[in-house]
Amino acid sequence: MQVPIAHFLILAAILFSLGVLGVVIRRNAIVIFMSIELMLNSVNLTFLAFSNYLQNVEGQVLVFLVMVVAAAEVAVGLAIIVAIFRIRETVHVDDIKLLKW
C-alpha cells in the first residue's frame, strides 16, 4: 500500500497554515523568520509531491532554487535583525515601528 499524493499535500497545507499562524501571532522577529522558513518548506514539499505525481524533474529544480533563495533571505534577514538589535536593543517587531530614528 502506497501513501496517496494527497496526504503529502495535506501535510504541506498544515505546515503552511502553521507558518502563517506563526507569522501573525509571534512578536519575535527571529521566530517570524522561522515561520517563513516553515512556509517555504511546505511549498518545497508540494513541489516534490507534484514532481513525483507528474514524473517531472522541474519540481526538483524549483526546490533547489527555493533553497538558494531561502539561504540568501536568511543571511540578509538575520543581518538586518542584528543591525536593528544593536540600535534598538529589541527583536520584537511591534517595538520596531518607526521608519526613522
Binding site: 496517496p4 499535500l9 498544515i14 497554515s17 502563517v20 501573525v24 513525483n52
Partner: peptide
C-alpha cells in the same frame, strides 16, 4: 488560518485523492 487550511485542503482533495507515490528515477 483554519479557513486557509480548509481552502488548501479542499483543492487537494478534489484533484488528488487517489494517486499513489510512484517509484521513479526523477529525483
Amino acid at each position: 488560518v483554519v479557513i486557509l487550511f480548509y481552502e488548501l485542503a479542499t483543492v487537494v482533495f478534489k484533484a488528488f485523492s487517489r494517486a499513489p507515490v510512484k517509484q521513479t528515477n526523477v529525483g
